[in-house]
Amino acid sequence: MKTTILRRAALAGVALSALLATAACGGDDTGGMTHGTGSSSAAGASPSAGATFNDADVMFAQMMIPHHQQAVTMADLAPTRASDTELKDLAARIKAAQDPEITTMKGWLTAWGKPTDLPSDHSMPGMTSGMPGMMSEQQMKNLAAANGAAFDKMFAELMIAHHNGAIDMAKAEQADGSNPEAKALAARIASDQATEVQTLRKILDRL
């Protein structure tokens, strides 16, 4: 009798231990999935949230956003106003490259707790006030009013100046910034837009 009671108690203890272990495993799985989803979502929303940054990184993003936005506005005019096929294709590539970069830089600034709008008293290390290569309001109106070969020539000339300004800003970020992702983007902008300037100059030569 005593042996039977002890055996039943032992079996009950084993069953209870197994039940507790199963519950614990289930809790870990659920918690792990929730944590993983949260981590993945946070990483996607703010890829540079945990990275270091300095004032040059912030100013680079704040300045390059409106600079890119103006280039996209210029590129948006090409499909209905340009006559040169190569220039139309280049304008489409400019828009396709710079639209996502605008989104990326806005994400950085949000993650860093900085405004996405450029402060009125902006300046950048190594530069005079203002953004290099930006078109005036009158220049943008003139471009929007042009068509055909006149548009092609004006677009190429203005975009060369615009790109050269972006290259200067990118080089300043490479020299003075500290955020690895911002410096990598600056390097890509400098390289890609230098190539596009060469293409625009070739287009100008044959117009």
Rank of each mutant, 00 (worst) to 15 (best):
M1T: 06
M1G: 06
K2D: 09
K2H: 10
T3S: 12
T4G: 05
T4F: 09
R7K: 12
R8T: 14
R8Q: 11
R8M: 12
A9K: 08
A10S: 11
A10N: 09
A10F: 05
A10Y: 08
V14Y: 05
A15V: 04
L16A: 07
A18L: 09
A18E: 01
A21L: 05
T22N: 03
T22Q: 04
C25V: 10
G26R: 04
G26A: 13
G31T: 11
M33E: 11
T34M: 14
H35I: 09
S39C: 03
A42P: 01
G44Q: 15
A45Y: 12
S46P: 03
A49C: 12
A49H: 13
G50H: 11
A51T: 11
T52W: 07
T52S: 14
T52V: 13
F53Q: 14
F53N: 14
N54K: 09
D55K: 08
D57P: 12
V58N: 10
A61K: 09
M63S: 10
M63Y: 04
P66C: 03
H67C: 00
H67D: 01
Q69P: 01
Q70V: 01
Q70A: 07
A71N: 07
A71V: 01
A71G: 13
L77W: 14
L77H: 12
R81A: 14
S83D: 15
D84C: 06
E86G: 12
K88C: 04
L90E: 02
A91I: 05
R93T: 03
K95H: 07
A96D: 05
I102P: 01
T103F: 01
T103N: 04
T103A: 13
T104Q: 04
K106S: 03
K106R: 07
W108Q: 03
W108L: 03
P115G: 06
T116M: 07
T116D: 06
P119S: 05
S120Q: 15
H122E: 02
P125R: 00
P125Y: 00
G126D: 00
T128E: 15
G130K: 13
G130Q: 10
G130L: 10
G130F: 00
M131L: 11
G133I: 00
M134F: 07
M134C: 10
M135S: 13
S136C: 07
E137M: 14
E137P: 06
E137V: 13
E137C: 03
Q138F: 04
Q139E: 15
K141I: 10
A146M: 08
A146T: 13
A146H: 12
G148D: 11
D152V: 10
K153W: 03
M154P: 12
M154V: 02
M154A: 04
F155T: 06
A156V: 07
E157H: 06
A161L: 02
H163I: 01
N164H: 05
A166R: 00
I167V: 15
I167Q: 04
D168L: 09
M169Q: 03
M169F: 00
A170C: 01
K171N: 05
E173D: 01
Q174M: 15
D176I: 00
D176C: 10
S178C: 08
A182R: 08
K183Y: 02
K183A: 12
A187M: 10
R188Y: 00
R188F: 01
R188N: 14
I189L: 10
A190M: 04
S191R: 10
A194L: 06
T195F: 08
Q198F: 04
Q198I: 06
T199L: 05
K202A: 13
K202F: 11
I203D: 08
D205F: 12
D205N: 15
D205G: 14
D205S: 15
L207K: 13
